[in-house]
Every structure is written in structure tokens, then in C-alpha cells.
Amino acid sequence: MKVLMRGNEAMAEAAIRAGCRTYFGYPITPQNEILEYMAAHLPAVGGACVQAESEVAAINMCYGAAAAGVRTLTSSSSPGISLKMEGISYLAGARLPVVIINVMRAGPGLGNIAPAQGDYFQATKGGGHGDYRLIVLAPSTVQEAAELVMLAFELADRYRVPAMILADGMLGQMMEPVELPPPIPPERIPPKPWALTGAKGRPPNVVSSFDLDPHRFREILRGLWDVYRQIQRDEVRWEEYQTEDAELVLVAYGTMGRICRTVVRRARREGLRVGLFRPITLWPFPSEPLRRLSARVPVFLTVELSAGQMWEDVRLSVDGRAQTPFYGELGGVVPTPEEILNEVKKYVRG
């Protein structure tokens, strides 16, 4: 049964269905509906929602709840995510499976509350200090947002790696019909023998990101990077749309991916052979499929709501085999399909 839901609410409901039983957040537009939804609905399923005193506190509450073995969520928008970065680094170091939703707005600084994609570097390249990565999932519809939230919990638990949903203000606020995935039965959530549940009948468990011995810490990080490489091998997700005969492929994610799908349809109507490559996992980035595509597609036009961040990963993947121009908007301005189509026409003719 489809229901009409706002993106933020659909993500919150999906989290509950994924077995999330603790949520810690702080108000910031344009993601307040997640906190409000959790405050209204988590207690009913025996969960706990705390409106924290800061983003810093919220992410550290997540650290505690995840350490205790419970599925936990926090959400924020760009400036708040910056505040969470310290905690996210600690989550990565302590191998805690927390899901973080970033409903991006325009920055830097206070910026504004309009949709933007300026946090790509922060999300995919580390963001906090140290050698770590997050699993980063980028939905482009409300339906996909709900599904990816459920996937994020699954992946975070499977690999003990924090996962981020990189959405934006447009997706968070948009209302769409959505078929909510069925709730995960509690017995399907994997056991966590490492969790802090009380040292009864077993040696004490310690959740920590700390080791003073460089050689020992190096081994811990090597193990962590083995996990990252496994994720890069097994969890890459992307969508291709009309790329089979394309002379130009748009590369875009999230809200921009959605708009670029419209661009492809309009271009096709005008006889332009344009396709779309839409990364769903921003980390791991779908480099290999993009590389394969670059063997036969001459132009990859990256379109982002930023000055060009994912663009760098596109260029690294294409590695000079094709043209890789960029088109982007700044400050929360969202380009129209017409504007993008005009840009496309600089590279392909019908």
C-alpha cells in the first residue's frame, strides 16, 4: 500500500522499521521532521528519542547507544553534520554501526536552508580526523530514501561501519507516494557479541578507538581497511538509465540525479543520445562501472549542486578516456532541466 509521505518522515519511519530503537538529534532545518517523527513514534515501540543539547552531544549519545548494541540513528543538516564530525570519527574508530542522515543545505557557514550537495567531500573522504570512510548512500526519491535507510542499518551492522544517508533539502521536504518496506523482525537483526551488555559469563567488552601503540594501532587500521576494501568490492550500487547508446552520459546523484533523469527524457525526445549514470553509493564510489562505460562514451557531464565535488571522483574513474566537463549550481540554487539540457547541447548534436 502506498502512502503519501514527506522524505524526512519516510526516512524516520523506515528507520523504525529497520529496528532502530534509539534516536538522538538536534533541531536544524530542513530535517526537523525526522526528530519530530521519532519523538512521536519511537516511544510507542519501546524506543528512546532524546532531543540533545547539541549535535556534538547527539552523536556521542549515538556512540553510547550503538555501543550498547542497539540500532541507533541521528540526523542533521550540513552545519550540524560538521559538529558531528568529531563523533563520527570516533564511531569509525570504535567500529560502531550508527546511521547518520544528512539532509544537506547550502554552505559554507550558516549558508541557507535550500537544497545543496556541498557536503560530498565531507561525507565520502572522511570529514572527521583520521583514516576512515563512511558508507554513503544517496537516494533520489522518497521511495529510495526509505529503502536506503533500511539498507544503511543492514550494512552498518554487517560491517560495523557507520553509514550516512546523503540527502538534500529537496528530498527531505518533498512529498511522494511511498511503499514502505515491511519491518525487520528483531530476530533478523544480527547479534552483537562485542556490545556492552554487562560482562556476565564472558570477559569484559571494551568499545574504544584508542591504542597508544603505533604498531598495534596500525594492525587495527589494516583490519579496518580490509573491511573497507570488502565493501568496495561487494556493496557498490548505481543506476544506469539509457546509457546503452549514449553519446553523452550525465553523472549525478540524489536530487540532481532525479532532475537529470528528466533531462535525459527531454534530450531523447529531441533525438539526442543522452544517458544517466547515477551513483547510489557515493562511498564506495562506482568507479569500475563508470570506467567500463568510459570505454565507449565520449562525454561524461557531471552535474551537482556544488562547485564540483563528486566531479573529482568521476574524473579519477574516467581517467582521461573521455571528456569530463562539469555543470553545477551554488548557494542552494537548483538548475532547471532546460538549463542542464542547454549545457548538454554544447557537447552533443541530434
Binding site: 556521542n60 553510547g64 560482562a199 574504544s208 584508542f210
Partner: peptide, 15 residues
């Protein structure tokens, strides 16, 4: 001899 979490500087009460 009990379970422990190592917190970031200052964040122990949040954890």
C-alpha cells in the same frame, strides 16, 4: 572487570 566505552574528550555524559 566490567564492560567499558572509551569516550571522546568531554563527551562521557552523552555517551
Amino acid at each position: 572487570r566490567c564492560d567499558f566505552a572509551q569516550a571522546a574528550h568531554g563527551r562521557a555524559c552523552a555517551v
